[in-house]
Design a protein around this nucleic acid. Sequence first.
DNA 1: CTTACTGCAAACCATTTGCACGATC
DNA 2: GATCGTGCAAATGGTTTGCAGTAAG
Lengths: 136, 136
Amino acid sequence: MSDLLERLRDRGWRLTSQRRVVAEVLDGEHVHLTADEVHARAVARLPEISRATVYNTLGEMVALGEVLEVATDGRAKRYDPNARHSHQHLVCSGCGAIRDVHPDGDPIAALPAAERFGFTISGAEITYRGLCPDCA
Amino acid sequence: MSDLLERLRDRGWRLTSQRRVVAEVLDGEHVHLTADEVHARAVARLPEISRATVYNTLGEMVALGEVLEVATDGRAKRYDPNARHSHQHLVCSGCGAIRDVHPDGDPIAALPAAERFGFTISGAEITYRGLCPDCA
DNA sequence: CTTACTGCAAACCATTTGCACGATC
DNA sequence: GATCGTGCAAATGGTTTGCAGTAAG
């Protein structure tokens, strides 16, 4: 289970009840919650936790590289605890559901040198768009 | 030049001075302006144009599929008039500059059936991240 | 002449911040 | 006991909306 929490602890992260709850709530496979959803679930376990703390905590986890920020282009950013395993996202244009997917091949390799304009490429994110079985 | 404007006119779009100015300002290659930048440039040509109209107009062009919304994950959305030619984006992690790029191969084809979870895939967006020559 | 676009200002929503209090090392 | 995290509430920035006025077809 709490893979994420363990990783954070190993990095000498100062541990408080709020931070622990945020990490626990966010952890898992195919989890892509908004800050507000994280807050709602955190409140269920720790009623006094504030939105500001949730935002701060998520921001720190992103800065540490343990959590990924996903802008699916809707309104609010979503947070993906699975930052360690490279994966891409499949987003339903109907209901906004997100799945993690693993395409074949390395997208970075597909970008020819002539198309790099002198940039040093450090990563690539792919968002597949489509309709899920329920929305089709 | 005003390819975008022409396309919009062909679709029977009601033409007003404001809309024309927005389309003109936005058109071109490698153009990725924020709504606010569009407004600033539009004001230079048509001083009374309001932010609300710029937002409405951009939203309509996006709904018509003639303009692409690009969420580079920074603060404001950017608008790309080049919705007709499939291309991907290269974003500088330093200064936020954007370049259009054309990778080899079709990213959709790289997603195996087993990874589609019953979704009907309609498109894929790739964002390459890196440092531009100036920021490196 | 009718319909639809525009401008204004106020509303909205997600997120950030300043600051005093409280908990951790 | 010094430092750092937390909570509150207010501020911010981007975007949307309601409504009266105005222009396009």
